[in-house]
Write a protein that binds this DNA or RNA. Sequence first.
DNA 1: GTCTATATTACGATAGAC
DNA 2: GTCTATCGTAATATAGAC
Lengths: 195, 195
Amino acid sequence: MARTQGSHSDITGPRVREAALSLFARHGYAAVSMRKIAAEVGVQAGALYNYTPDKQSLLFDLMNTHMQELLASWKAQPKRPDPLDQLEDFTRFHIRFHSKRPDEVFIAYMELRNLSEENYRKISALRDLYETQIEDVFREGIRSGVFDVVDPKVASMAVIAMLTGVNTWFREGGRLSLPDVENLYCDMVRRSVSA
Amino acid sequence: MARTQGSHSDITGPRVREAALSLFARHGYAAVSMRKIAAEVGVQAGALYNYTPDKQSLLFDLMNTHMQELLASWKAQPKRPDPLDQLEDFTRFHIRFHSKRPDEVFIAYMELRNLSEENYRKISALRDLYETQIEDVFREGIRSGVFDVVDPKVASMAVIAMLTGVNTWFREGGRLSLPDVENLYCDMVRRSVSA
DNA sequence: GTCTATATTACGATAGAC
DNA sequence: GTCTATCGTAATATAGAC
């Protein structure tokens, strides 16, 4: 782990972010010191400040990058016309995207309160934007009559909570494969809101 | 807040727990110092150690009490014979119990990683016990044919995640009353698993 | 039972040498 | 770009006076 002197700006930068991601996810932002991040990277604590102005920015960058990628990924998906298909697509997308990034997801949900006020507002806005993606699907499906949903906002929160919960128990190589899980949740989600 | 000297063992004890509960929920276990808890109670930091051997025990006590009360409360409920009714009862119970204790719930979900290994095992066992309560309902309903559920374990995790998610957005006095929310979730939960 | 005082350790961040 | 060294602050926990 320990290294002697040398210049590695192009390598160290990403490694700082990776180390922070992993340590924040495992122990929590408040419990992880800059010294520990530095030790994981293999540099001294002072060297980290070549890559981030402070610890708070490190946290914000991780959460912001995650949320931006989440939104961009969803918007890049081909959109099928039937709201029932859109709901299935969202379900599979959400499970797949989140299961591939357990650390990012964990941080995005657990460390909101450790953001500065301004940073919190920015991340919250991105979360709201993501929630309206599925909310809009519900509204469209209510209008067209394929969904029997009284409150699209509540339905959105319920479905997202249910899907995000997969990350708390699913492990690759366990009893169920990821496609198995996707199919089970597609079934439950569709039935919970179908007319 | 600050007080002069005096003996208040019967009052201070609960106040220490209350202060820790509120502060841990708002800022996170790792971000809250014993000094801040003491300040909230109105004593000096050293005085806290009359009521807890250390900070870790304070966290464990809060989580353990919460989980014990959760299990005892559910088991004290009258049990109706039909699994469909049991599912509705569980849904209403879970939402009601959790919405009344937002701080305890928040800590129970967010601070697992700050428990010592031994304490983590104890809390985990209590969580498993709670999860099997609804899992057993599903198994019974599958046998009797009222549920169409392929995997009762997955269905349990899905339903619990969905219900616990209510705490992230529901606020008393908002657009919806708690009975409104209960009804909406009862509907979704029942339909997601019914034959 | 609570206080003051303190031992010991660690924190985030910065300065200046190389 | 990274190092060593350090500033100023705050952490958990304990000791002994009242």
